[in-house]
């Protein structure tokens, strides 16, 4: 097992690609020794981040693309998702009021909370030409 490694894919900004993206993350995280629970958490966090980019950065325009970079080091995995669309940073990472959303027949707004629950750190970086969300998870689960 190579403790330091980088893998990258570029996919179109389409929900059709969600399963491919999840499989890409799982394949490399498994090879790197992450537990099946950790792999599930990583897949869901990346799924939610990628879905938010499709919706909010690109307004469902599948001609656009998203670059996903996995960077393993001895302590952790950091996953960066890059897009070239509208930058957005969520206002809140709190648990959404699901009861209120149901009453108002609203949905959505849950992905950001999940990402923060599933990952050890989450950060947003706005570069002049692209936006990045970086999700990191330690190799050793904290007890």
């Amino acid at each position: 097992m190579n403790k330091t490694a980088t893998y990258r894919i570029t996919v179109s900004a389409s929900t059709e690609k969600l399963s491919e993206v999840r499989e890409f993350v799982a394949l490399h995280a498994r090879k790197q020794g992450f537990s099946s629970k950790q792999v599930s958490d990583l897949q869901l966090a990346v799924d939610e981040a990628y879905t938010n980019i499709i919706k909010h950065a690109y307004q469902n325009n599948s001609d656009e693309s998203v670059e996903i970079n996995l960077s393993f080091d001895p302590d952790k995995l950091c996953i960066s998702l890059f897009d070239y669309g509208n930058s957005f940073e969520p206002e809140s990472y709190n648990l959404p009021d699901i009861r209120k959303k149901i009453k108002e027949k609203k949905r959505g707004g849950m992905g950001v909370y999940l990402i923060h629950q599933l990952m050890d750190s989450v950060s947003y970086h706005q570069n002049p030409d692209k936006n990045e969300i970086r999700l990191c998870k330690k190799r050793n689960e904290t007890v």
């Binding site: 869901l44 879905t51 149901i102 027949k105 949905r107 992905g111």
Partner: peptide
């Protein structure tokens, strides 16, 4: 085998 929040959103939209 797997669910993301978009799946939960469907249950939220129709339960009422």
């Amino acid at each position: 085998e797997y669910i993301a929040s978009a799946g939960l959103g469907v249950f939220m939209a129709y339960i009422e």
